[in-house]
Design a binder for these strands. Structure first.
Lengths: 118, 118
DNA sequence: TCCTTAGTTCAAAGGTTATTGAACAATTGG
DNA sequence: CCAATTGTTCAATAACCTTTGAACTAAGGA
C-alpha cells in the first residue's frame, strides 16, 4: 500500500503555498525541517491536533508534494521533499522555514500541552 | 480615505502564504513584480477577473500586507510591499516571484482575452 | 450640471476547508 | 489468539472562500 504522491514536475506553486498557509501544517513543516534526515511518524505531531485531524493535514502536505509518506508497519515515515521542492522552487522552502522559525504565533511541537496529561 | 494596511510587524507568514495560494492573486503579484516601481491601478488586472472580483482579491492582498493601495482620485495605486516583506521574510518574495515566472498554469495579465472583445 | 470612469459594498449562492467522533483496518507484542 | 498501537475512512457540521450582479460612491471632464 503505497500512498499517492505527485511527481516533482506535478508539484504546483499555488497549491504548495496554499497548503503552507495553515498554521498547523506550517508547524509540521518547520518541525520536519528542524529534524531533517530523521523520518517522523504521525504521533510526533499530536501536540498540534487530534489524530484524525493530523491524518487530514498530513495528507494535504503529501498530496501537494511537500512531504513524502511511506508506510512501515502501522507507522508512517514522513519526510520533507526538500530536493524536489528546491528543484522546482529554488529558495522557497529555505525562506519559508527561516521565516516560520521566527514566528511566535505558530503552534509548537514538543512544548507538550498533551504530554502533560499523558 | 486611507485604506487599512497591517504594519510590517503585523504581517503574518501563514496569512501571506495562504493569500498567495490563489492563482489569480499570484498572477497579480507576479505582474506587479515584473513592473516594479510602476504603480498599477486595478484596471490593469481585468484580464484576470471581473471588477468586483478584483476588488475582493486586491483587498485580500492589501489586508495580508502583500500590497499597498493608495487612493488617488477614483483610482487606486497598487504597489508590492517589497521592503516590508523582505524585512519580515527574507528571500520569500524573490523565490515566489521566480517560481511564479516559470508557472505556465498561472493566468496572464496582458495576454488579453478581454481586450479582443473590447 | 450631467455623464463617464474607477472602484466599492452588499447579499446571495456555491464551493472548499477544517474539525470532530465513531467505526474501521493492519501490524506488533504478550 | 488477544490486545494494544498506529493510523485511515466516513459522515456530519461549521466556517470560510470565491464568484456573481445590482446598486452604490466619488472624482473628473465636457
Amino acid at each position: 500500500m503505497t500512498l499517492p504522491h505527485p511527481t516533482a514536475d506535478q508539484i504546483s506553486l499555488p497549491i504548495v503555498l496554499g497548503v503552507l498557509g495553515d498554521p498547523t501544517r506550517l508547524a509540521i513543516v518547520r518541525y520536519l525541517a528542524s529534524k531533517e534526515g530523521v523520518p517522523m511518524n504521525c504521533g510526533k505531531f499530536l501536540d498540534l491536533a487530534s489524530k484524525t485531524n493530523l491524518s487530514y493535514h498530513l495528507a494535504k502536505l503529501r498530496e501537494a508534494g511537500v512531504t513524502r509518506t511511506e508506510a512501515v508497519g502501522t507507522s508512517r515515515l514522513i519526510t520533507l521533499r526538500r530536493d524536489d521542492l528546491d528543484k522546482r522552487f529554488p529558495g522557497l522552502l529555505d525562506s519559508v522555514i527561516a521565516a516560520a522559525g521566527e514566528d511566535k504565533a505558530l503552534p509548537m511541537v514538543g512544548t507538550a500541552d498533551t504530554e502533560i496529561e499523558a
